[in-house]
Amino acid sequence: MDLSKAPNPRKLQLCRTYFLTGFAFLPFVWAINVCWFFAEAFRKPTYPEQSQIKRYVIYSAIGTLFWTIALITWIVIFQTNRAAWGATADYISFIIPLGSA
């Protein structure tokens, strides 16, 4: 879909929908929102809805950042402690790496 042809209220509505959808454990949607509306929020000449779009974009960016950090932290903790946690760790492992012979 082409944002440049969309009227401003529609942009705001889309941005808000993407932002609200992101709360359903969907940081990827937030990331899309940031990438998609970044130019609208910061590069375009001002229009009435822009301040709200800007707010949603910033919040989405914060959310994405938070999720990224959280996910990386979790992965690092899990992978470093996997052997130590024993059966529990094996139980929640999707792929257990094979050792090389």
Partner: peptide, 20 residues
């Protein structure tokens, strides 16, 4: 590629990818 991954991460990735 022998990349280790746990279920919570995998489920999160799948959920995000699919819904988007």
């Amino acid at each position: 590629y022998n990349i280790p991954m746990d279920y919570p991460t995998a489920v999160l990735i799948m959920w995000n990818f699919g819904v988007a």
